[in-house]
């Protein structure tokens, strides 16, 4: 559902398409064990991850994110059955099928291959997880897992359906405890019919998994608690490094050159990374930080709390630096990043 008056930043007659075919069958009808306060929070999150792969649902998802003093709220329809997912519709569709993701822009489909052999860390590796009081989301009973940082602050909450173990809601909080980003079902029904998958364009390009890191580029194995899970070469030569810490993920895109600051979108908050000028944006997917260093244009994108992202980014261009132990080396004004 596209609210009136909204406009998309990217042009193109065909929105991004990501296609997945999912066969739910009886998998989701298996009687689920009711989560109790004694449940292992990591196990609960793993169940949610597994349930996502075989979900059979139809509903409406609300995405809410904060950008400075603005709050954005959008709602989209979502349908899934087995390994097929369709979220949104028309020009604003994300589709997944057969374990692959298809993204189309201006009529060109990009076939996304994972090819990863590296497993993400366990959810509790970087965050202290605990079971909170149960709640309801979209009228459904949910178990709640909270994730705390080293200072003991709750930085994320995950609401897992007690019946299907589907993730019903995930919230991310800033350091002050204010909601930074949220994705949740506002309406949900299970046992849905297979979604109508849009016709995919036949022309396409592929984002290829790669182990080659070009000269001048960098690929640290770890960025703080984030572990490198995959490297991808985009058709335009951009290198994408994909990291996970068990709860959140982080991509670092690398392009050769200098940042053309005059051409960057408005709305970026200015700061620095490793003494280099940087701009931070807030999108539905997470925090986006753009900066340049040593002849590279670097873009970090993550759904992790913004300060977590800031703490690890200096390690991108310093492969031999221990980002876990180092002081966060960036300069910011009194208003900080958040």
């Amino acid at each position: 559902m596209k609210p009136a008056g909204m406009k998309r930043a990217r042009s193109g007659t065909i929105g991004r398409l990501v296609l997945i075919a999912a066969i739910v069958g009886t998998a989701c009808l298996v009687i689920a064990t009711e989560a109790t306060a004694g449940d292992d929070p990591e196990a609960l999150l793993r169940k949610a991850r597994d349930a996502s792969a075989t979900a059979n649902v139809a509903g409406v998802v609300e995405v809410r994110w904060v950008d400075g003093d603005q709050v954005f709220v959008e709602r989209v329809g979502a349908r899934s059955r087995g390994d097929a997912y369709v979220v949104g519709r028309g020009e604003h569709v994300a589709v997944g099928r057969d374990g692959m993701r298809y993204a189309a822009d201006d009529g060109v489909a990009t076939r996304w291959g994972s090819g990863d052999q590296v497993h993400a860390p366990e959810p509790g590796t970087a965050w202290k997880l605990e079971i909170d009081d149960p709640a309801h989301v979209a009228g459904r009973a949910a178990s709640v897992v909270s994730a705390r940082d080293a200072a003991g602050r709750v930085r994320a909450r995950f609401y897992v359906d007690r019946s299907t173990h589907l993730l019903l809601r995930r919230d991310v909080f800033d350091r002050s405890g204010a909601l930074a980003r949220s994705v949740r079902f506002v309406r949900l029904s299970t046992g849905a019919a297979a979604p109508a998958v849009p016709q995919l364009p036949t022309k396409g390009s592929q984002v290829a998994a790669t182990s080659d890191v070009p000269d001048g580029f960098t690929a640290p194995d770890h960025l703080g608690a984030f572990r490198l899970l995959g490297r991808y070469r985009h058709p335009d030569g951009t290198l994408q490094l994909f990291y996970g810490d068990g709860l959140f993920s982080l991509s670092v895109f690398e392009q050769s050159g200098l940042v053309d600051w005059d051409a960057m979108p408005n709305g970026g908050r200015r700061g620095q990374v490793e003494g280099q000028r940087a701009a931070t944006y807030s999108t539905a997917a997470g925090t986006v930080v753009v900066w340049g260093e040593q002849g590279l244009v670097l873009t970090g994108v993550s759904d992790a709390p913004t300060d977590t992202v800031q703490a690890v980014l200096p390690g991108v261009a310093n492969d031999n630096q221990s980002t876990v132990d180092d002081v966060v080396n960036f300069v910011f004004g009194p208003f900080g990043w958040e």
Binding site: Q272, E274, G275, Q276, D326, V327, N329, V331
Partner: peptide, 12 residues
Amino acid sequence: MRRRKRRPTSAL
């Protein structure tokens, strides 16, 4: 300055 230093900037 940044090119010459190649080291983190200390917080003020």
